[in-house]
Design a protein around this nucleic acid. Structure first.
Lengths: 113, 113
DNA sequence: TCGCGAATTCACGAACTCTTCAATTACAGC
DNA sequence: GCTGTAATTGAAGAGTTCGTGAATTCGCGA
C-alpha cells in the first residue's frame, strides 16, 4: 500500500465528518434510495447534497446508478451499520463522561462559590 | 439532546480525521502512555502533537494526567478498538472495490482501444 | 531561587472545506 | 428539436484546520 494505513484511515474518517454525509449513509442502510428521496429526508439545497454525495462517491463508500431521469444511491459495501453502532457506543460513553464532568464542575462551583 | 445526533456523530468522526490523532488512539489501545513516548513513536513536532492531543482531550476521548514532570495520556472509554476494527473492515472492502473498478477500467480500455 | 527539560499555548500564513448561486448535463414527454 | 425536471459541476467567498516557531507554564533538582 503506497499510502500509510493511518493516513487512509484518517481520510476515511474525515470523509464521514459531515452531518449530511452521515445522514445519507444512515438512510442508505435501509436500502438504495434515489436522490429525490434523500433530498426530501435531508432538508438541504440540491447542489449541496450533490456535493456531499460526490464526496461519498469519490471515496467509494457509495455507488450511484442512473435509472431514467433519477439517480439511485446505494452503499458500496455492507457494514457501515456496524461502524455507526461502534461510533454511537463510544459517543454515548463520552457524553456520559462529559455529563459526569459537568456534574463535577457544578459541584465544584457550588462548593467554592 | 440539544445537538442533533447526526451532528454529534459528524463532529466525532471529524475529530478522528487526522493521521496523528489516529496513531495516538491506536498507540493508547495498548495502555496509557506518556507524551514523551508518543513523541518518539510518532515523528512529529512536539507542538504539533500537543495540538492534536488537545483536540482529542477536548472531545473527551482521551484523558491526561500529570505524573511529576511528564503527562500521561489514556483512552477515556474502552472500545476504540472495535471502532478501528470496523473502520479497517470497511476500508479493506472499499479498497478491494476500487481495485476491482480499476481492473474493470483496464479491461474496458483494452477492449475499446 | 535559578536553570532545565517536558509539555502546552499563542500567533500567523498556507491549505483545505463548506455553502451558495449560476451554468451545465442527462433524460422524458410532447 | 423544444421544454421541463433531475442531478451534477464550477466558481467564489467565508470560515476552519494545519503546521511551524516563539513564548509560556509547570514541576523537579541543584
Amino acid at each position: 500500500m503506497q499510502v500509510p494505513l493511518y493516513q487512509a484511515k484518517a481520510e476515511f474518517f474525515r470523509m464521514l465528518g459531515h452531518p449530511v454525509r452521515i445522514r445519507v449513509l444512515e438512510l442508505l442502510q435501509d436500502g438504495p434510495m434515489p436522490v429525490r428521496d434523500l433530498l426530501v429526508a435531508i432538508e438541504v439545497e440540491p447542489s449541496n447534497l450533490s456535493q456531499q454525495l460526490a464526496v461519498l462517491r469519490r471515496s467509494g463508500i457509495v455507488t450511484a446508478t442512473r435509472d431514467g431521469s433519477t439517480v439511485v444511491y446505494a452503499l458500496a459495501g455492507g457494514d457501515v451499520a456496524e461502524l455507526m453502532r461502534a461510533a454511537r457506543r463510544i459517543l454515548t460513553e463520552m457524553l456520559a463522561g462529559q455529563e459526569g464532568l459537568l456534574a463535577q464542575l457544578r459541584d465544584a462551583e457550588a462548593g467554592s462559590g
